[in-house]
Design a protein around this nucleic acid. Sequence first.
DNA 1: AAACAGCGCAACCGCTCCACC
DNA 2: CGGTGGAGCGGTTGCGCTGTT
Length: 317
Amino acid sequence: MGRSPCCDKRGLKKGPWTPEEDELLIKYINNNGHGSWRSLPKQAGLLRCGKSCRLRWTNYLRPDIKRGPFSPEEEKLVIQLHGILGNRWAAIASQLPGRTDNEIKNLWNTHLRKRLLCMGINPQTHEPASITYGPTIKPPSSPSTRHMAQWESARLEAEARLSRESFLFNPPPLQRIGSDYFLRIWNSEVGESFRKFNKSDKTACQSPTSQASSSTKGGSVSGTTMEMALVVAGSSATGSSLNKDKESKIKISKPCLDNVVAGSDSSSSNESEDSSDTALQLLLDFPSNNDMSFLGQTENYDLYPSILTESSLHCSL
DNA sequence: AAACAGCGCAACCGCTCCACC
DNA sequence: CGGTGGAGCGGTTGCGCTGTT
């Protein structure tokens, strides 16, 4: 657009960082903190734009970065979180202390995505690739990929939400829950009403991505848009400064949630409002960093139980 | 040994969000 | 309340390294 670049790029260096530049940046941040990224390069004596400095620091130079290969547990967690959060790399990264969004993004694009594909799982939907798409859900190769991605994102969030609500209100029996748990909910009456509502009132209930840009002012539970803040506690557990002042937010349009909670009975809107508010309050109690039990990965919910086993490794590229 | 292909990773780019005025 | 600018995020690219032919 007409927007000027983040900085005056004339005379600024691009490309790989030299050890000397790294040293300058580390020294400056250790002494002064990063403060304003925009003014940092000048003050630190670097011929870089602030954006580049921020990226270099957060992705490479930060002292709390854990380098080296991902452990199987980390990979598994990334896959599970991706199934819930989609391509929200920063949100996923916040659950893996010491890992950066860039690192996770690279891991996904170079390893995990291929592995899932190889196993016949659609990496976008986390559903079996052979699934037949209904009239409203087109295969990823559709021309309207971008739009569908938003839909998928909304659907995944709905699945996560429905799942958590279900767990909260109706704790599952101890027996193992099938890996198609979300899919079954999505195909159930509740999911159906959610889809119907989306179809009939796309302006009132857009995908979180598009909704976010138009109605973030409300913010509170009683507003038209609710923000479910996943209070990322990754830093608090480790002492990291990465997320101390940051929250990853998933924005959910209230009509959507109401509809999901109330089912297709729109006449009980008042009731649904109450119940949705209750649900929201419960949803707001998002688990802290190391408590990923909401995924049930160990007992109840193991999305890809065999994904990291020996037998599946031969599939990895 | 050279050419080529594939992979992994660091960095850039463009967009959105959000705070501030 | 709208405009502006800084920060952050996700998608994409470019390049070096490694394996294969």
